[in-house]
Write a protein that binds this DNA or RNA. Structure first.
Lengths: 208, 208
DNA sequence: CAGTTAATGAAACACTTGTTTCGATAAGAT
DNA sequence: ATCTTATCGAAACAAGTGTTTCATTAACTG
């Protein structure tokens, strides 16, 4: 009965509402950097953003809701795939882009927060899934181009190649908790490329 | 002043103390399965374990402390590496072992909980780091054996090969939130092996 | 088999987090 | 410019979380 049919802020998204959202997301990132997702509290974010805590609870509901919205915001800002003219350069560009994001003070903690939120919160998990699937699809094109140029075997699965580039970096970041260095990124590119050239990413029987 | 020089339970670890710990860790896992790390509360764990909440706070301090202890417990139970006589069989055994752990109802949620805890809690992060480094070292031996048998190039970095096997599984589990299937595991083995055979895991100048 | 005291747990407490209410403000419509 | 009402926010409230106190229990010691 009392629940609005749409969430607050969707009917009048202009002026004030937009300012409040920007201030809250900004405050959320600041809090993530200083305290981490663990200690991200609605009250603190509200105070820092200079808005009422009622508003933060109403529009985002929980800390997971905050970081999920942050992730959706990042999704809109992400850039298209590189095109260096060769598959090695393209894949390296992808690896370095991920590397820089993970090591960036603000972006790094944000990704880690959403990953943490995703382990227990369905909306956060969906946001992660959607975000990475779009990023993977975007960069998978560089593999198709490489196949067209004859650099890689026909039938090479582009999305899988892109996943293979990122996987070792995220694995170290959140699982083994080892540093994610430039060297790690370079090795990931070299190994993925070696496997791809050997035809290990060719999808057999993909067409029935 | 009031802080004991060692944490509670380390001076008289017999009988009662051990029973309390077992009951609490059991209850923690049950709660993780039913509600997830997000909703893991000290009160609820204490009630379920049939112990006073004072005890849970005193010995573990926080939900992160609980799952960290759970991880240390798992570390003691982990088994040695396979020895099938061939590198492909050994790596497949490793991949399947990880696959089964991640898809196991109890183990899966536990790993995810510790990963989530690790993003913001230093002790949890250290437990993760220590656990996986030991597991990686243990399984790296199968690569050394393979090199000795002439299956892989001399100088192949065993630890890196093992990391490469696991990385895609964890990447899907916690980052892209895609299903972690048998097929994913098999492909990880095939691709890692292809790269390894091509010499992409040979550490150049490691002794320089 | 006592004696000592580490460890536990019930209860009272302080603090934090989340919800509800309702008047104030300003976005968008006419 | 004026009206309507979505959105906001201060305050009071309810619920949950974490701490302290202290009596009880039971490991370990000799």
């Amino acid at each position: 009965m009392d629940q609005p049919s749409r969430s607050a802020g969707t009917v009048r998204p202009g002026g004030r509402t937009a300012r409040v959202r920007a201030a809250v997301l900004e405050a959320t990132q600041d809090e993530l950097v200083e305290r981490g997702f663990h200690e991200l509290t609605m009250d603190q974010v509200a105070a820092r953003a200079g808005v009422g805590k009622t508003t933060v609870y109403r529009r985002w509901g929980s800390p997971s809701g905050l970081v999920t919205d942050l992730m959706n915001e990042l999704a809109d800002q992400s850039s298209p795939h590189a095109d260096t003219g060769g598959i090695e350069g393209d894949l390296r560009a992808n690896a370095v882009s991920v590397l820089n994001a993970l090591n960036d003070e603000r972006l790094g903690v944000t990704f880690q927060a959403v990953i943490a939120a995703g382990t227990g919160d369905e909306p956060a998990a969906r946001a992660l899934h959607a975000f990475y699937l779009r990023r993977i699809q975007e960069w998978a094109n560089v593999v198709d181009l490489a196949v067209a140029r004859g650099e890689l075997p026909a039938g090479t699965d582009g999305a899988e190649v892109i996943r293979a580039i990122s996987a070792p970096l995220y694995y170290r970041l959140v699982v083994t908790r080892e540093p994610v260095t430039r060297e790690v990124a370079e090795r990931s590119v070299a190994r993925t490329l070696a496997a791809a050239r050997a035809g290990a990413f060719v999808t057999t029987g993909s067409r029935g």
